[in-house]
C-alpha cells in the first residue's frame, strides 16, 4: 500500500515535470500514424478486388487465394521490363557511382592549397542542389543532337553527333553519368569527414618508412575509410530494388521507355494514371518487402565479414 502511493507520487511528479514533452510529441506521432501507418492498411487491396465503395477490410479477396495481382504482375510485360530496368540502372549506379566519390575524396584530400580546396568543394556540391527537372533541362540543351554544346564540339572535332538521350543504350549511359555528376561531390562529404578521423601519426610513420603518395593512400587512407565504405555499401545494396521517381521520370522520353520505365514509374502509370489500384499496390508491396529483405541480408553479410554493420 505504502509502496504503491510512493510509486504514484513518483509518477505524478514525473508527469508534472515532463508532461510538456509528451504534448510536444503529439503532433509528430500523429503525423507518423496518419501518413505512414494508416496508409499501410490499404496494402490489403493488393490481395483484394478493389472497390471504390468498400473499405479495404470489406472488399472481396482476389482470386488464387488473394495472389491474383501478384501473378498478374509477373505476367505483365511492362512490369517485367520495369523490374529489369530498376535492377539494371541501380546495379550500374552501384558499379560506377559508388567508387566515384571515394576517388574524388582521395583527390580532394591530396589538395595542398586550402582555399582552392574550399572553392572546389563548393563547386562540386552544386549539382546536388539542382532538381532532376533542371538537370534534365540542362541535359536536353547540352546534349541535343543538333545544337547541343557537346555535339557541337564533337562535330567540330570531326565526329558525328551522338543521340545521348534518344537512343536506349546511350540513354542508360547518360543516366548513369548524370547520376554521378549530380551526387559525386556531395557524397565525398562523408568520406572526407572519415579521412579527418584518421590518426596523422600513421601518415608520419608511413613517410618515415619511405612511402610515397600512392602507398600512403593505399596503406593508410583506404584502410581508414574501410568501415565507412562498408556501411555505405550495405545501404546501397539494400536499395538495389528501390527506385527513384524524379530522376528516371525527368530524364525519360518516348524513345527510351523500354529502358527508362522503372518500378516507381510503372506504379505511377498503372496506379494513378491507369487506376489499377490493386495491381500497382501489389507491385509496390513486392518492392518494399524485397527492399527490407535486401537491407537485412546485406547487414548480416557485413557482420559476418567482421564489420560493424548499420545496427
Amino acid at each position: 500500500m505504502f509502496a504503491s502511493t510512493m510509486n504514484l507520487n513518483k509518477t505524478l511528479s514525473y508527469l508534472k515535470r515532463y508532461w510538456v514533452l509528451y504534448v510536444m510529441l503529439i503532433l509528430p506521432i500523429a503525423f507518423f500514424i496518419t501518413f505512414r501507418y494508416i496508409p499501410m492498411h490499404y496494402i490489403l487491396i493488393a490481395f483484394k478486388k478493389y472497390s471504390i465503395v468498400q473499405s479495404p477490410w470489406e472488399m472481396a479477396w482476389a482470386d488464387n487465394n488473394g495472389m491474383q495481382y501478384f501473378i498478374q504482375a509477373f505476367n505483365n510485360r511492362d512490369f517485367l521490363y520495369a523490374l529489369r530496368n530498376t535492377l539494371m540502372l541501380n546495379l550500374l549506379d552501384l558499379i560506377f557511382g559508388f567508387p566515384a566519390p571515394i576517388i574524388l575524396a582521395l583527390i580532394l584530400n591530396e589538395l595542398v592549397f586550402k582555399r582552392f580546396k574550399r572553392f572546389t568543394q563548393t563547386v562540386v556540391y552544386l549539382p546536388h542542389f539542382l532538381s532532376w527537372i533542371i538537370i534534365s533541362g540542362m541535359a536536353l540543351q547540352l546534349l541535343a543532337p543538333t545544337n547541343g554544346l557537346v555535339n557541337i564540339l564533337l562535330n567540330r572535332m570531326g565526329y558525328s553527333s551522338i543521340p545521348f538521350l534518344n537512343d536506349p543504350a546511350w540513354w542508360v549511359a547518360t543516366y548513369v553519368a548524370l547520376g554521378i555528376w549530380q551526387s559525386v561531390g556531395w557524397n565525398t562529404i562523408i568520406y572526407l569527414a572519415a579521412i579527418t578521423g584518421i590518426n596523422p601519426e600513421l601518415y608520419e610513420a608511413a613517410s618515415v618508412d619511405g612511402a610515397g603518395r600512392f602507398r600512403k593512400i593505399w596503406h593508410v587512407t583506404l584502410p581508414g575509410l574501410r568501415p565507412t565504405i562498408i556501411v555505405l555499401l550495405i545501404l546501397s545494396l539494400g536499395h538495389i530494388l528501390s527506385s527513384e521517381f524524379d530522376r528516371p521520370y525527368a530524364l525519360s522520353n518516348k524513345l527510351v521507355t523500354e529502358v527508362s520505365n522503372v518500378i516507381s514509374i510503372f506504379v505511377y502509370n498503372y496506379g494513378i494514371r491507369g487506376l489499377n489500384f490493386s495491381l500497382s499496390t501489389a507491385v509496390g508491396l513486392f518492392q518494399s518487402v524485397v527492399c527490407v529483405i535486401f537491407l537485412f541480408a546485406a547487414n548480416a553479410l557485413a557482420k559476418r565479414f567482421g564489420e560493424r554493420g548499420i545496427w
Binding site: L25, P28, I29, F32, I33, T34, F35, R36, Y37, I38, P39, M40, H41, Y42, I43, I45, S264, V267, Y268, G271, I272, F277, S280, T281, G284, L285, Q287, S288, C291, V292, L295
Partner: peptide, 22 residues
C-alpha cells in the same frame, strides 16, 4: 516505443498507391 515507431517508417513504407488512397 516512440523511437521504434519512427524508425520503422524508414525501412518500410506503404507505397505510392496506399498514400494516394489515403
Amino acid at each position: 516505443f516512440f523511437v521504434g515507431l519512427i524508425l520503422f517508417t524508414m525501412y518500410f513504407n506503404a507505397g505510392t498507391i496506399p498514400m494516394y488512397l489515403l
